[in-house]
Amino acid sequence: MTLTSVLIVASALVGIGLYGALSQQSFVMLMMGLELMLNGVLLAVIGFWSFGLGGAPEGQLFAIIVMAVMAVEMAIGFALVVAVYRKKQADMTEALETLKN
């Protein structure tokens, strides 16, 4: 377990997450792709903190910020999905050809 191996695992998670975010039709599944990418980011941040900072607490602080970003993404994402569903009864990206209405 070295910083290199941790970062490679993190980049694998980012790659899989990117695939999911680009390929999924359902809004909720798309958000899962974004979450998986952030999962990789979180792992990379903790990896850097653990191996490269000599234990400086700012690294952990950054991880907490990443977690807050995840929560924001989820909450706003779901709120948008609910708003779109109200308007168009759709939970698929293809149903949105325009942002009007």
Binding site: I8, S11, G15, I16, Q25
Partner: peptide, 21 residues
Amino acid sequence: MMVHQHKLAIGAGVLAFLGLT
């Protein structure tokens, strides 16, 4: 199975992984 632009997405994912690695 609900996907679109499947090949492109796989390509982007693999490219991201290889680039980062």
